[in-house]
Computed example of a mutant assay.
Amino acid sequence: MASPRSFRLEMLQVARLAPKLLGESASLVEKFLLSQVTPQGGFADRQGKPDLYYTVFGLESLLALRVEAPQEKVSAYLRTFGHGEGLDFVHACSLARCHANLGGQFISQSDKHGLADLIETYRTPDGGYHGTRGRPAGSAYGGLLAWGAYNDLNLPMPQEERLGEALAALALADGSFANEPGMREGTTTTTAAAVTLARHLSFPLPTGTGAWLLKQVHPSGGFLATPRAPLPDLLSTATALHALEGLQIPFGHIREICLDFIDSLWTAEGGFYGHWADDHLDAEYTSYGLLALGHLSS
């Protein structure tokens, strides 16, 4: 995959292909996404409250559809967080990503450095990052979020080479990745995150990683979160397809069943459900729907 050195831009590049499959339904997605903007300026979480994490996905989905976000409203919301003081790790990284999605014009250089300093407080002794301070080792998800945040802030990550070493410690014998040390079973999303991070860090992956991901395909389409999961889900599907594309592993043989799976989660309201048992629409899963469709568009 010829991609920018940013997994945010990389995924946006792919999601922009989704309208080829959506056709006229793209306008329904646009309408749904704009309905998720709260009076405070952030995109709504599942309780209807503005949230930085969901704002990431709302902004990126609009960018994928080439629809202009209500910048003045959203930027005013983002500026209330300054350099992120008081935010947890995920929301600090989300703040950096939201600003990047608005072109970086609404955050000062001092706030960028302050946000990077905050993210650095989640660094672990092994060189990785974890969403909880004080952990001895990093998580795969934490590593990807931190690396992405530094890119979004356009700042160099201190000792970036140590991040790859921390990631390598999470590899399991079957080719999958555990999110944290000591876990005996990998997950699809964690393995996909490890693939993306390792590729950007030019760090070698186990030979069986791609094969393990393909084994998680459900007979009815979509990917399972773990080998023992009862149902496939959209997050696992989108991230697995992205990882397989990055590994240059063909997945044309599962294209039709994956399209059928995604279609089963689509609603005329313009959003996507996360899985067959889900009954709530949000910007996050709609974003993953666009990413998955982008990978399946050709």
Rank of each mutant, 00 (worst) to 15 (best):
A193E: 01
A166D: 07
D174C: 11
A166H: 03
Q159Y: 12
R199S: 06
S176R: 12
G182H: 15
T188Y: 02
A171C: 13
G208N: 13
T207K: 15
T190K: 00
T191Y: 09
E180F: 14
R162W: 07
E161F: 08
E185C: 02
Q159D: 15
L170P: 04
N179V: 05
T188D: 01
G182L: 15
L153E: 01
V195C: 01
F203W: 14
M183W: 08
E185P: 00
D174W: 09
P206R: 13
T209K: 05
G175M: 10
A193D: 06
T187S: 14
A194H: 03
S176M: 10
G164T: 11
N179W: 06
N179L: 07
P204C: 08
G175E: 11
H200C: 00
N179Y: 06
T190C: 09
L205P: 02
G186E: 01
N154E: 15
F177D: 05
T191L: 11
A168P: 00
G164I: 14
A169M: 13
L167F: 09
A192Q: 04
A173W: 09
P181W: 13
T189G: 05
A192R: 02
A171L: 09
M157I: 02
L205I: 06
P181Q: 15
P204S: 08
G175A: 13
A169H: 12
L170R: 09
Q159V: 08
G175P: 06
D152V: 02
R199D: 00
M183S: 08
A169D: 11
G175N: 10
P206M: 10
E161I: 04
G208W: 00
T207W: 04
A193C: 10
F203M: 01
A193L: 04
A169W: 04
A192S: 15
N179D: 15
G175C: 11
R184Q: 15
R199E: 02
P204L: 12
L201H: 04
Q159S: 13
A178P: 03
A173Y: 07
G164K: 14
L201Q: 07
G208Q: 15
P158C: 14
A168Q: 15
G182N: 14
A171H: 12
E160K: 12
T191R: 10
V195Q: 01
N154W: 01
E165C: 03
T209G: 07
L163W: 04
A178T: 04
E160F: 00
P206L: 12
N154M: 06
D152W: 01
M157E: 08
E160A: 13
H200D: 09
A198T: 03
A168C: 07
G210F: 05
R184N: 09
E180Q: 14
A169L: 14
L197D: 00
L153G: 02
M183Y: 05
A178N: 05
P181G: 12
A192I: 05
L167K: 11
E165A: 13
M183H: 08
L172C: 10
R162I: 01
L201P: 01
L153K: 07
N179F: 04
A168E: 15
L201M: 06
L163V: 05
Q159C: 10
L197T: 00
T187Q: 12
G208F: 02
R184G: 09
Q159N: 15
L167H: 04
A168F: 02
M183L: 10
L197K: 01
T209F: 04
A168R: 15
H200M: 10
T190D: 03
H200L: 12
D152P: 01
A198H: 03
L201A: 04
T189K: 00
R199M: 02
M157N: 02
R199N: 02
T209Q: 06
